[in-house]
Amino acid sequence: MTITAGAPLAEAPAAQAARTPWARKALPWALTAVLLAGAWVVNAVALPDSASEAPFVSAATVGGTATAGNLTAKVIGVHAARSINDPSGWTAEGTWLVVELDAEAVDSQYGSMLSVAELTIGDRTFRATERGQTMFRTGALVPGVMRHGALAFELPEDALKGTAALRLANASTVADNGVIELPIDLGGIPIEDDITLPETGWAG
């Protein structure tokens, strides 16, 4: 017995189309439009790849105390000078930015140090100098007890203009860790002839 694929079957789809309500025909198009719009929104709000490692930023002001991660710090003053020296007698000329601060750890003294100290000016990033006696990567940060000291940044001659961002952290890298961020108005800092770095010791 053969099934004759004849006229009745051929006629059915066309007839069906003529009888389907307009709304049902438009439904797939409407769904496509909604999904496309949704995809565009998701793409627009999606964070960049590096967002999963972005640091937790805690904003600070000069004189105020801020906490981020295992670091609590209070920046006491920001100065600029054409030459710096330290209690051991070392001296260096150049364009220097000196940040005086108190810092302590929060949870643990084990491995605690002021290991991230960066100054970002425009598209350049500077790191605190390891020369001379400063608080940079030297000495322990104690939970609950503030240490007082300074950081020095060696800058190019023409760099003391515009705004800069100072970032401090008690962690080996900034990724996934807390970081204290302080905006600095470089143009508003008077440039002194010589600054003596304070000796690192207990605050207060």
């Binding site: 949870d107 643990s108 003294q109 084990y110 000495g139 104690v142 939970p143």
Partner: peptide, 11 residues
């Protein structure tokens, strides 16, 4: 609290 302190000497 679990906070930890490490030995200090010269400080």
């Amino acid at each position: 609290t679990g906070r930890e302190w490490a030995p200090l000497r010269s400080e």
